[in-house]
């Protein structure tokens, strides 16, 4: 009996996917289900009893003002941080791509924030934001009023977003460059033969061909901004998402519940994580549907 070409391809696909699937099921999905299991309990890793309490943790999550504050903040991280990062990185990538000399040098310049140690980054930026720091110095030279930056509940979250955008640029630029460089030169040649202007070429040829890259950056950008944690812990006042919870994110709150609260509220933390997970999953599916229509199915 001969398999059809179609069936043979199925078998190959499953064969290639076998090891990775086993990996994901055991290393990622399994522990995630375990976290879901924890969320149904009064779970404390240190205690001996971990009573089952059903959906009680979820009920409390929906009642928790700080959680919703963290949830709103998390949206701000996403809604401000993702577009800002994409815009800056696209502009810089287009610029870098036009360079002919010192290409490597310039790329390294823009990539360096991404590889600078997080401890160093947090430390230097905190200094730059202090009342006597570089930024306030510039403001006062321009005759503008000083800002409290990290100390002011109105600006602290944006001060942290500026850092995360700055730090993520190197990553996004490299991905954009990879996307731009993958655009077959013939397309561009053909466009210029047709007499298209720079803007037209960009809009009609570069952008559509860049779509998979943009989808990737939007989706991963949203996912990583929804999980922002380290920068808040190292930069916000007292490291707890202050002042007055103005910078706290869901993941930071989850971390506090699981590992800083005593006794540990691991079950409650897991419930918050599950809520966040469901939200991210929904957003991602919607994004994939809308952003990559056609390519997706």
């Amino acid at each position: 009996m001969r398999l059809t070409l179609e069936r043979r391809k199925w078998i190959w696909a499953y064969l290639f996917l076998a090891v990775p699937l086993i990996f994901f099921l055991s290393i990622r999905i399994g522990p995630t289900l375990f976290a879901f299991w924890m969320s149904l309990h009064e779970w404390d890793p240190i205690a001996l009893d971990r009573p089952f309490i059903g959906l009680e943790n979820y009920r409390e999550v929906f009642d928790d003002e700080v959680f919703w504050k963290a949830f709103r903040n998390t949206w701000i991280y996403v809604v401000v941080g993702v577009p800002a990062g994409l815009l800056f990185s696209l502009v810089v990538a287009l610029g870098l791509q036009r360079l002919i000399r010192f290409v490597g040098f310039y790329r390294v310049l823009y990539f360096i924030p991404y590889i600078t140690s997080l401890v160093a980054v947090g430390w230097v930026w905190r200094w730059m934001y202090t009342p006597n720091g570089v930024f306030n110095d510039v403001l006062s030279r321009l005759g503008l009023p000083q800002s409290g930056f990290l100390g002011d509940p109105g600006t602290a979250i944006y001060a942290i977003i500026a850092t995360t955008v700055w730090q993520g640029l190197g990553f996004q630029i490299v991905i954009f460059l990879a996307g731009l460089e993958s655009i077959p030169g013939d397309y561009l040649d053909a466009a210029s033969v047709d007499g298209a202007s720079g803007w037209q070429t960009f809009r009609d040829i570069v952008m559509p061909l860049l779509n998979p890259t943009i989808v990737f950056l939007v989706v991963t950008g949203v996912i990583s901004n929804l999980q922002v944690f380290t920068q808040i812990r190292s930069m916000s006042s007292a490291g707890t998402g202050g002042p007055l919870d103005s910078t706290i994110s869901v993941v930071l709150y989850v971390y506090q519940a699981a590992f800083q609260s005593l006794p540990s509220e691991m079950g409650y933390a897991a419930a918050m994580m599950v809520v966040l997970f469901v939200v991210i999953l929904l957003i991602t599916v919607v994004q994939l549907k809308f952003l990559s229509r056609g390519a997706y199915d």
């Binding site: 971990r50 009573p51 009642d63 700080v66 506090q256």
Partner: peptide
């Protein structure tokens, strides 16, 4: 709604 940093429920272990 209540302000909370991890108030546990009455079933608290």
């Amino acid at each position: 709604m209540s302000k909370s940093r991890f108030k546990t429920s009455d079933t608290s272990i």
